[in-house]
């Protein structure tokens, strides 16, 4: 029973992990808590659903969903991020929240506010190991998520583009001095984080076979929690945080009760913020100079 719950928790955690990585890219490099990402998560799931409802094959439906998320994210960059540089830090955050509300309501107008059944794409096949039952979709999504994160981490470490991104994350001034074209890099990062969030939304839809206009809220906010628990700006922190939050959620549902989920998950977040604000794998902020 416990082992089964741990497996389920890790599977859910894989989704949070992807969302957390999307958030951590935006915050680690751009210092922008991008609340439109939960909306893009939802776009991933709902646009796939809508396209498949029109009879499109799943791979094209996914491609359209990812493309839509990328385009919307460029709009977010344009309207919520670029115009606000140098202003109060709350403003881009609020504009990105505006995007979340906008996306939710646009999708709601199109598809209604109810939960919709997402078609089963994978044969209903389960692996049985010992007493454990593990779904095909679960295994696949965990594997794909981990592969994606591994690749991203390699990419940031080993390629020139990755080094440029890490330089911008360290210090904007240094990056400018080194001739890095930030104005080109920023939209690319927006697209990357949007793709991650939308892809997580697709995985969620395939896995749990349900979508709704508000599916991004719960998952998105827990993705933020996962990012902070792991340590902002750290990809492996986001992985660790995502898995921890997934575990905490599933275990508290099965052992304490579904209504207690928010207490454990956000209690954990609050505790981490008070005791170790830089997160489990994050570095503490350095003291300012006078």
């Amino acid at each position: 029973m416990l082992a089964q719950q741990i497996v389920n928790g890790l599977m859910l955690g894989a989704i949070y992990m992807l969302v957390a990585v999307a958030f951590t890219l935006a915050i680690g490099v751009l210092n922008f808590l991008n609340f439109s990402l939960p909306g893009l998560f939802m776009v991933g799931g709902m646009v796939s659903f809508g396209m498949m409802k029109l009879g499109w094959p799943w791979f094209l439906a996914f491609a359209v969903a990812l493309l839509a998320a990328a385009l919307i994210s460029l709009l977010v960059e344009r309207l919520a991020y670029r115009r606000m540089q140098g202003g109060d830090p709350e403003v881009p955050l609020v504009s990105s929240l505006g995007f979340l509300v906008l996306l939710e309501n646009l999708v709601l107008i199109q598809y209604g506010s109810d939960q919709q059944a997402f078609p089963a794409l994978l044969p209903d096949m389960n692996f049985r190991i010992g007493g454990l039952v593990i779904g095909m979709a679960q295994v696949l999504s965990l594997a794909v998520s981990l592969a994606l994160v591994f690749w991203l981490s390699r990419f940031l470490k080993a390629t020139n583009a990755g080094r440029r991104i890490r330089t911008v994350a360290e210090s904007r001034e240094t990056a400018l001095l080194m001739g890095i074209d930030i104005s080109r890099l920023v939209p690319q990062l927006f697209v990357a984080s949007a793709l991650l969030a939308a892809f997580a939304g697709i995985l969620f839809a395939v896995n749990y076979q349900q979508v709704s206009p508000f599916m991004g809220e719960g998952v998105g906010f827990k993705g933020v929690a996962a990012m902070i628990v792991g340590g902002m700006g750290s990809i492996w922190g986001a992985v660790l945080g995502g898995l921890l939050i997934g575990l905490a959620e599933v275990l508290s549902i099965s052992f304490i009760g579904a209504d207690m989920v928010n207490i454990t998950v956000y209690g954990l977040l609050l505790l981490i913020l008070i005791v170790r604000p830089q997160g489990l794998l994050g570095r503490p902020a350095s003291r300012e100079k006078l």
Binding site: I27, L33, P89, L93, F221, V224, A225, I228, M232, G257, D259, M260, V261, N262, I263, V265, Y266, G267, L269, L270, L273, I274, P277
Partner: peptide
């Protein structure tokens, strides 16, 4: 941002406590 998230978590916890 850490403070914003802490207050965010706080709001969630408080309303969840009343829910239970």
């Amino acid at each position: 941002i850490y403070l914003a998230m802490a207050t965010f978590a706080l709001g969630q916890v408080i309303s969840a406590v009343f829910l239970n």
